[in-house]
Computed example of a mutant assay.
Amino acid sequence: MTQNLDAISPDIPSDYESLKARISTLSDSMPKRLLQCARYALANPDRIALGTTAEIASAAGVQPSTLVRFAQTLGFDGFSQMQQIFQGQLVGRNSEYTERLTKIRESGTNTPGGILGNFVERSKQSLDDLLRQVDTVALERSIEALSAAENIHLLGLRRAYPVVSYLHYTLGKMGVRTNLLEYTGGILEERVQFINENDALFVATFSPYSPEVVEFASKAFGRGVSVISLTDSVLSPIARVSSTVLEVNEAEHGAFRSLSTTMCLATSIAVAVGDARKWTSLS
């Protein structure tokens, strides 16, 4: 729902999550340049945390004054106050990974062999869960949509990027036309216009979910494109803008998660699509 910027609560976001929520609430009402700032900030939180106003404005393609106005729109006195939230997120994230490593050390399995053994065991658990819990109807629908598509567009950022990159490689080896979408130059949004109803969009995103991926999928879905999403929960924000949702969960070791089960599912999808395309071309 579109909201009036002046009607938003003046409370200042106190952490990165509340900041993201504020941006999400205001995004529909933001002028073009402020929305450009918002997208850049969410896609490059480390640069916002560490850069100068001039450096960030140049990279985002806006004027420094626009960055200040963006911060004030979110309830801050100025850019520096907003930047502190991004800096806190950066420090917190580093501390979070330190805590994860501490958990592994405290478990007494911090030798290389112990770490490997635990990840193998967790991966076995996740693979068994996938086999028991996979939604075979959703899987078959996904294969049908991807097999019938003229072009398969692939999108995943951060932890999900290796998944779509692997699909791009494997499907390409089988002669399936794919397009790997990347967030470069801040022009991801514009690429949605090149996806039509005869194509399919495959997206992957996991908690805390990439807002850029959700937004892109939403626009494609609104254009009538078949959107197949690979995510870790049917309650994921990507589920609302997907034709079909495939759910996969990775068991953790010391709060770290591998991609073994996710890659297994992705490989199965690629092989099934390649096989379906082969038989379709022969019939």
Rank of each mutant, 00 (worst) to 15 (best):
E96I: 05
D28W: 02
G113Q: 07
P211Q: 05
A270D: 15
A57F: 00
L235E: 11
I238Y: 03
Q63E: 15
M1S: 10
L116F: 15
V91N: 11
G108R: 01
L154A: 06
T102E: 13
A21S: 13
Y183N: 14
Y183A: 15
R191E: 00
L35Y: 01
S242Y: 03
L155V: 10
A145H: 03
G78F: 03
Q36V: 00
A251G: 15
L116C: 14
F76L: 04
S283F: 06
K103N: 13
S142L: 02
D129V: 07
V271P: 12
L19K: 00
E140K: 15
A239E: 02
L35D: 03
L116H: 12
E212H: 09
I143G: 14
L90S: 11
Q89S: 15
F206D: 14
Y16W: 01
S123M: 08
T73D: 01
V137E: 09
V248E: 02
A59Y: 00
R141A: 14
C264Q: 11
V245L: 07
D232N: 08
P13N: 15
N198Q: 10
N44S: 07
T170D: 15
A148N: 11
C37E: 00
S210F: 00
V176D: 01
D77S: 03
F70Q: 00
G156R: 09
Q84P: 05
T25G: 11
T244M: 05
T262N: 09
S80C: 06
A160E: 02
A49V: 12
P208Y: 01
